[in-house]
């Protein structure tokens, strides 16, 4: 028990100090790296709090891909955006105003943290009713999967996940609308190329495994999609321009695969006289795997696109077909 307590205190202290350090520094690159470390410690905390599904997603998406995105933004100097808007502080009155503002916001934030913690303590003291978790385990047998988190994500609250895929699609389309991607990286040296040669198949295999295992153990479409995206990012870093990522129309198909499959299943069931996304228990497992596979493709395609930061440009020499 005391060992656990020491671990808890260590985890909490490193979370808080990493977050403070990441937010306090003015060096953008340093800030991002500290934030990635924060994400990894957070993944440990999820593991400690018995949330392995979340730990996997945090490590892959929260720390991994967010970090990669932020690092490329630093490389492209994108963090300078919005900075020029603030006029330099000259007059003493303005500087005083700034200090007052900083103190006010800081005090308000401290008050907010205190209020939230106090309310949370009250909520814990009411001995939380566990009705929803009980309802999940009562209906787990007919949900088509045995991992309760997957059951919630793809059956009981599948509609949330459908909208979440729509959010992902929206972000990708918004990035698309801003213009073409930046030019690719230079070709990597033989060492990295050799590394990529075995790392990429391993990542793809891992993605497939995570997708399959999600039905009964920690894992699922999102972790698998992120791993697949990681494979593409490695290839990209190795200098492959298109990384097997389709351009033009096929890319659109990959991006909307998740939303389309979800809608097709949901509306198909509606036409057959069942509720929207109301899987018949006998088919539930198969339908969930079908949706998850499509979702994994969509997530991987979108995350890679986000990493590229725009519409992929075809390799030189390959003329873009009319789109």
């Amino acid at each position: 028990m005391t060992a656990m307590l020491v671990l808890d205190i260590l985890l909490v202290l490193s979370l808080l100090s990493l977050a403070t350090a990441a937010l306090a520094t003015n060096d953008a690159r340093r800030s991002v790296i500290l934030f990635m470390a924060f994400g990894l410690v957070l993944a440990l905390a999820w593991g400690r709090l018995l949330a392995p599904d979340v730990a996997l997603a945090e490590a892959a998406i929260g720390a991994g891909l967010s970090g990669a995105l932020l690092l490329t933004a630093v490389r492209d100097q994108a963090h300078r955006a919005l900075r020029s808007s603030r006029k330099p502080v000259h007059e003493r009155g303005r500087a005083n105003l700034r200090v007052t503002l900083e103190w006010t916001v800081t005090l308000l934030c401290i008050a907010l943290a205190g209020l939230l913690a106090w309310a949370l303590a009250q909520a814990f003291d009411r001995a939380p009713k566990d009705t929803l978790a009980q309802a999940v385990s009562a209906n787990l047998a007919i949900s088509g999967v045995s991992n309760p988190v997957t059951a919630v994500l793809l059956n009981f609250r599948a509609y949330d996940t459908l909208l979440e895929l729509a959010v992902l699609l929206t972000a990708a389309l918004g990035i698309f609308a801003l213009g073409p991607a930046r030019p690719g990286h230079r070709a990597a040296g033989p060492v990295f190329d050799g590394l990529a040669r075995w790392l990429v198949p391993a990542l793809i295999l891992t993605a497939g495994y995570l997708l399959w295992v999600g039905a009964h153990a920690p894992g699922g479409a999102f972790q698998a999609g992120a791993t697949l995206a990681a494979a593409a990012v490695v290839l990209r870093l190795a200098g492959r321009r298109s990384v097997g990522l389709p351009t033009g129309h096929t890319l659109h198909v990959a991006m909307v695969a998740g939303v389309s499959m979800f809608l097709a299943v949901g509306l198909g069931l509606l036409v057959l006289g069942r509720p929207f996304l109301g899987y018949p228990p006998a088919w539930a497992g198969g339908l969930i795997l079908l949706i998850e596979t499509a979702a994994m493709l969509a997530i991987a395609a979108t995350l890679v696109l986000a990493f590229f930061g725009g519409r992929p440009t075809p390799a030189p020499g390959v003329a873009e077909k009319t789109s």
Binding site: A51, D53, V54, A57, E58, I61, G62, L65, S66, L69, L70, T72, A73, D76, A78, H79, A81, L82, L132, A133, V136, P148, V149, A151, V152, L153, F156, R157, D160, T161, E164, V167, L168, T170, A171, G174, I175, L178, R182, G220, F222, I299, T302, L303, A306, G309, G310
Partner: peptide, 26 residues
């Protein structure tokens, strides 16, 4: 498990928003 599922959704939404913000900044 409900809360775990909610957080998983939240993580994906957060990374989508981050990606869009960085693309705008770029």
């Amino acid at each position: 498990p409900v809360l775990h599922a909610l957080v998983l959704t939240g993580i994906v939404v957060a990374v989508s928003a981050t990606a869009l913000a960085l693309a705008l900044a770029r």
